[in-house]
Design a protein around this nucleic acid. Structure first.
Lengths: 209, 209
DNA sequence: ATGGTAATATTCCAAATGGAATATGACCGA
DNA sequence: TCGGTCATATTCCATTTGGAATATTACCAT
């Protein structure tokens, strides 16, 4: 029953484990490989975090530094390989991420929350602009996906790209719908009773004595 | 033309500016208010970041500490208010977030990227599990939305909740579709030419001398 | 050969983040 | 009125993140 304990592994850490499951690499090579596979499109990548995360993974015993080599003349480098426990963590984490939705904090949500501070016409313009930008992005990514499929990649290995495109299409539709709702007045532009919230909270704060 | 310069403001910072646009508050009250309005559902909130962010906003001149008061016997506290430049930043940032899509890094994408490490039956199970969890969440949030609308809130002030529900519904559909594709073999379960990538990269790395 | 740019590889440090620790008074029951 | 717990309010610190700085070799044009 100990395998129900879920370990928290960041996407970058997961990506490192995954690459090392293929063959041993040094951190810089991990970064280069992630970039060559466009993985940095989906996973935040920078050297500070990368080297730090590698250290943490080593401390956890999920990877070990196999050798420190000075080869071909290039700067010295440390090569890491995946351990058995590391491989377990990889599989466990992938399964858990797939199975359990988690709260994702989107910038766009924050924009929507405070949209009512803009004039309705301005808000509608901004959303229209967004819809167009989304459209352009969808076009670009769809072409990319087609090319990659044509060049022999399988759908399975490009599933995250397919997912991203689906997400963007959904967003484009929703954004257009809301923009339209604003321009033809179906989305009423007044604040509602947020102030009522405030009245309740007022019992703390300003009461005398 | 100076107003085209876009300032980078975190969602938490934006939220602080927005609350202070209503009336002056002290940081703890900001947190309490965000929670009472369920804003922490969409914006990452913790005390460390909150107090730190308030400091940064003050340094930028977007808010000022109006008074340091010891009132009602409660612990001493510092009350902040929004400045004119702060109000400008608020409007500018909301507009920009709405208009410009930005890359969002989702945990789920990382799961999908490495899904092929699982057995197809296992992957399908995980996705089915996710779809059910999403369904439960959608039900819960839809009820919440209905209640809030019934209690007098406007659609406009709940638009981010409406958006979240739409997102979740889209995801549920997509996840179900993929899970089905796996179980009936339409999503072919082999790796493709990622190794080809590797062969190309091989020119660095292992070449002799 | 030489000097300038690009690629390789890591380290360093400032900033942001998360969460526990601390402190103070309010409220309530025995 | 004493003690325990809850709400209020902030500070502190370890970790994580982002990005610039550094160092070494490769490659190419002159």
């Amino acid at each position: 029953m100990t395998d129900t304990i879920s370990v928290d592994v960041s996407p970058l850490a997961l990506s490192i484990l995954e690459l090392l499951s293929e063959r041993p690499m040094h951190p810089y090579e991990l970064a280069a490989t992630m970039r060559s596979r466009h993985h940095d499109e989906f996973i935040r990548l920078n050297f500070g975090s990368l080297y730090h995360t590698v250290e943490v993974l080593e401390r956890n015993g999920w990877i070990v530094s196999a050798e420190r080599e000075k080869e071909g003349g290039r700067p010295e480098r440390t090569i890491y390989r995946l351990t058995d426990s590391g491989r377990k963590v990889l599989l466990l984490t992938v399964g858990e991420i797939l199975a359990e939705p988690r709260r994702e904090y989107l910038h766009f949500s924050a924009g929507l929350m405070f949209m009512h501070h803009l004039e309705p016409t301005v808000a509608a313009e901004k959303l229209e602009h967004r819809a167009q930008a989304l459209h352009a992005l969808i076009t670009k990514l769809s072409h990319l996906l087609d090319e990659l499929l044509a060049s022999g990649h399988t759908r399975l290995t490009l599933i995250e790209l397919e997912h991203k495109i689906a997400l963007l299409e959904g967003e484009r539709g929703w954004v257009r719908k809301i923009a339209k709702g604003i321009t033809d007045g179906k989305l009423e532009w007044r604040a509602g009773i947020d102030a009522g919230d405030e009245r309740l909270r007022r019992k703390h704060g300003k009461s005398a004595h």
